[in-house]
Structures are given as C-alpha cells and as structure tokens.
Design a protein around this nucleic acid. Structure first.
Length: 286
DNA sequence: CACCATGTTCCTTG
DNA sequence: CCAAGGAACATGGT
C-alpha cells in the first residue's frame, strides 16, 4: 500500500493510537528491514521509549520517540516498500506470517508486516535528505517543478517517479496525473511548455489530495489479514462499494484494453524504466 | 514455466 | 562527475 496518499492516511490513523504509548519490547522478524541497525541495536534504542507524533515525509513514516521528557527525542524512519502494512492488534492475536517488526505496547502490539521485504524500519535518516519538495506543500510551485524537470531527455512519467524531483508520487498516481493533465507519459521532460507544467503540477496535487480524501472517508480494516495489498484495501471483510475495488477509482491505471472514460479510445499499457505506464493515446498526444 | 506487482538502490555504460 | 538504463532485492498471484 504505498504512495503518498496511502502513507498519509496510515499516519493519520496511527498517530493517535501510538502517541503516549511506551515500548515494552521489540522483536525483529526480518533483519533486512532494520538494516543498517541490527535487531539488538534497534531494540536497545527503542525499549522504554514513548511515542510522540507520527508524521510523514514523502512515502516515509517518521515515528518520534523519547526516553522521558529530559532525554533527546529521536525518530524511527519507516517505509512500506511495495507490500508493507502497519497496524495495531491485541497482544493476544497471532502474528501475521510476514511480520517484519513487532513492538510490544502492553495490551496491544504494533505490527509491521511486509511480504516482499522491500520496506524499512530503522534509525537512518539519510534517505530523507535526497527528497524533493512535498507535492502538496507551497514549495511545489510551477517554477520549482519546471526547474526540476529541467533539460532532461527522460520521459516526463519517469521524472515524476524521481523522488529527488518531487517526493511521494508513485507508479499509479504518475499515470493518473498525466491522464488528468492530458499529457502523454512518453513526452520528454524538456519538451513540456510552461502552461503544461503548470497544469501537470495542479493535477498532481489534485489526484493526491483526492486520494487522501477518499482514503480518509472510507472505513478501513487496518488489521485485516486478508486480501492483498491494494491501495486502501486493508482486509476484505466489509466488501462495501466504497472499498470493493481500489482499481475502480483509477482512470487509466490497470485499464489497458478498456475504453478511455473521456474519449472512448483504448487505454494502452507500455513499459518505461521497467515500470508499467497506462495512458490514452488519443487524450494524451505524444 | 512465464509474466506481473503500489519502491528504492546499486551497478554499468556512455 | 552526471545521466540513463537495467538488474537486483523477496515473495507471491495469475
């Protein structure tokens, strides 16, 4: 579940649940997730600490912690990778199969499960320094965006995934924003005019904000063990219309072969930098 | 067996 | 040094 909107909704969910809770124990099920820390080092640092705010930077989660009010605050940096999930469950519940980190909070436990182990949960803040502006912040201006796209000969869709350019867009919302802006993902970044860049910036913000609104409006089954890892699809108990199919919310992503909702032309899939891209060649002229 | 998957990092090539 | 392309990472689902 991992682009900016999903992380934002997760953070809003976790913050009030974790705040003020004291860590009694830490168990690492997948050592790779906590590197470069070792399991023992991480546990040493965390046990006894109390959660403060849980916030987000791009797709990273930041868990503020401190050992009493007189000691220096620090934070754990989390990332969901492709398949990470985080939730609280009763301490008596069985641990999920792919539990990467489990934190004992007393009555409850905080679980980070990650099937593919692309996620992380450690004290290394270095990756944060490489990130570009938050797309929903005032820093993400058309000027800044234009500057970032620069003279690059790379396709604009590939540039949208570059976290040093703008931080938080992933493979789904990149295709979606380009469709809404009516810009082909195949266009070279440097070929975009000022007007197009401004439009793309606005649609990026819109698609991310809408997704956050959507995720915040739907009752999510955070601890559900079920159903895959689709965005905003935590468990499948309540298969109501709102959560039934996350993909149904997308205009082009995953819709290759289907008619474009705007022009009825056919949505096509192509591969750019090893990732799938979806677009409507009629609405998004190359 | 083949190909696909919401992400990031490392290595090679130019 | 930089830009760009590709493989690797680990584990599935179809």
């Amino acid at each position: 579940m991992p682009e900016l909107p999903e992380v934002e909704v997760l953070v809003r969910h976790l913050d009030p649940l974790l705040r003020g809770k004291r860590i009694r124990g830490v168990t690492v099920g997948r050592a790779k997730i906590v590197r470069p820390e070792t399991s023992a080092t991480l546990a040493d640092r965390l046990v006894g600490a109390t959660f403060g705010a849980t916030t987000r930077r791009a797709k990273y989660l930041l868990f503020d912690l401190r050992h009493g009010t007189r000691s220096e605050p620090f934070s754990v940096v989390g990332h969901l990778g492709m398949t990470g999930r985080m939730f609280l469950q009763p301490a008596s519940a069985p641990l999920p199969k792919h539990t990467a980190v489990s934190i004992d909070l007393g009555e409850q436990r905080f679980v980070f499960e990650d099937q593919r182990c692309f996620g992380r949960f450690n004290l290394d803040r270095a990756p944060l320094a490489e990130l570009g502006p938050e797309p929903l912040s005032d820093d993400f201006t058309a000027d800044a965006f234009s500057e970032a796209l620069g003279r690059s000969s790379q396709a604009v869709k590939v540039k949208l995934l570059d976290q040093s350019l703008v931080a938080g867009i992933g493979n789904i919302y990149a295709s979606e924003a380009l469709f809404l802006a009516g810009i082909s993902p195949l266009r070279r970044a440097r070929s975009l005019g000022r007007e197009e860049i401004g439009r793309l910036r606005d649609r990026v913000r819109e698609v991310l904000a809408d997704a956050i609104r959507f995720g915040g409006s739907v009752p999510l089954d955070w601890s559900g063990a079920g159903k895959g890892h689709a965005l905003f699809y935590y468990g499948a108990k309540e298969t109501g219309p709102a959560t039934r199919s996350a993909e149904e919310r997308f205009a082009v992503y995953g819709r290759d072969g289907e008619p474009c909702t705007r022009c009825s032309g056919e949505v096509v899939r192509c591969v750019q930098a090893g990732r799938s891209t979806f677009h409507c060649p009629r609405c998004q002229l190359a």
